[in-house]
Amino acid sequence: MAGIAQEQATNRLLRSLPEEAFGLIAPDLKACDLPAGRPLVEADKPIEHIYFIESGLASMVAVSSDGNSIEVGQIGYEGISGYPVLLGTDRTPNRAFMEVAGRGLELSTSRFLSLQAHPEAHLVFLRYIHTRELQLAQSALAAARYSMHKRLARWLLMCHDRLILDDMPLTHDFLALMLGVRRSGVTEHLHILEGMHAIRSTRGSVRILNRRILLEVAGASYGAPEAEYERLIGSELLGDERPSKLRGAGWFS
């Protein structure tokens, strides 16, 4: 998709770039399908491409030497994979892969890093890294201080924010893996949320019935990174001009 127009992009970082900066990379952006399970960043391997997520959901996962893993971040249409390259490193021990299939715009790392010469664009990405660090910090806080009930509600809200779908293709096994708990625990708490009429959980799918109930359950465990993203980055996608497919998305709606 060489020569993509900025208003055609769904990715909020691309839409937030100054027009001049976007023009520098537009000819090199390559549209691609991102099927579930596709790796975006491999552990300890050079990050050769950056992916601007247009739809779907990616997970960043920390993996220990003995094989234990847990999700440390989510990426949707608000973000990119491979951002550690902005910190002067070409690789990371963490992995990133597509959790829910979608589409994206691929850009070589070298072309992406050329944007550092554009101060306003560079600032956008530095602010994005700040929101990523805050998301990680809030995940650690939630794991240490909040109940499984609240953590599950928080995680579902974060998925809902990024997928812009009420029917989310999430399995109990995957929820357990991402939250670092047993499958039986996830199933039990999904049933509790069902009893509150917040969700409906079926095989391989979680449907959001009432987001407000999830917000009440999650309480203070959810919202700080989302608010910081809107404060620092924001975009016209929040206004009336955003594409119809994005209206009604999360982010405090």
Score class of each variant (00 low, 15 high):
Glu48Cys: 08
Arg200Ser: 06
Ala43Arg: 06
Leu215Gln: 10
Ser221Ala: 07
Leu190Gly: 03
Lys45Trp: 08
Gly82Tyr: 04
Glu42Trp: 13
Glu194Phe: 14
Pro35Tyr: 12
Ile70Phe: 06
Ile70Gln: 11
Leu24Tyr: 08
Asn210Cys: 06
Asn68Gly: 13
Gly67Lys: 04
His49Met: 11
Asp33Tyr: 13
Ile192Phe: 09
Ala96Asn: 10
Met60Ala: 14
Arg127Asp: 08
Ile233Cys: 03
Arg145Cys: 14
Gly23Phe: 04
Asp240Thr: 09
Glu54Arg: 10
Pro39Lys: 05
Cys32Val: 13
Gly3Ile: 00
Tyr229Gly: 01
Leu24Pro: 13
Gly180Met: 05
Gly73Leu: 06
Glu236Ile: 08
Ala176Gly: 01
Glu48Pro: 01
Ala143Cys: 08
Arg132Phe: 06
His130Phe: 07
Leu152Pro: 01
Ala96Phe: 07
Phe174Asn: 10
Glu241Cys: 04
His49Thr: 05
Asn68Thr: 11
Arg231Asn: 00
Leu165Asp: 01
His149Asp: 13
Cys159Phe: 02
Pro27Glu: 03
Gly102Phe: 03
Arg91Asp: 09
Gly223His: 05
Thr10Pro: 08
Asn11Arg: 02
Thr202Cys: 14
Ser201Trp: 09
Val100Ile: 08
Thr131Gly: 04
Gln135His: 08
Leu193Val: 11
Leu87Ala: 08
Ile192Trp: 14
Leu57Gln: 02
Gly23Leu: 03
Ala58Gln: 15
Glu228Pro: 05
Ser110Leu: 12
Asn11His: 05
Ser201Val: 06
Gly79Val: 01
Ile233Lys: 01
Trp155Val: 03
His197Trp: 09
Ser201Leu: 07
Leu29Cys: 00
Glu230Asp: 00
Gly250Leu: 00
Ile50Cys: 07
Glu19Met: 10
Ser244Ala: 12
Arg91Ser: 03
Arg231Lys: 02
Arg231Ser: 00
Ile25Trp: 10
Thr89Lys: 13
Ser59Asp: 12
Glu42Asn: 15
Ser114Asn: 14
Ile199Arg: 05
Pro18Tyr: 15
Gly3Trp: 00
Ser59Asn: 15
Met148Ile: 07
Leu170Met: 06
His172Tyr: 11
Arg15Ile: 03
Arg15Tyr: 03
His191Ser: 12
Asp66Pro: 01
His189Gln: 02
Arg207Cys: 15
Arg127Tyr: 15
Leu179Asn: 05
Leu115Ser: 02
Gly250Met: 00
Ala31Phe: 13
Ala144Gly: 11
Leu214Ala: 02
Gly239Lys: 01
Glu106Lys: 08
Arg183Lys: 10
Glu54Leu: 12
Gly102Glu: 06
Ser81Trp: 14
Ala143Met: 12
Leu126Pro: 06
Thr10Asp: 14
Leu193Met: 11
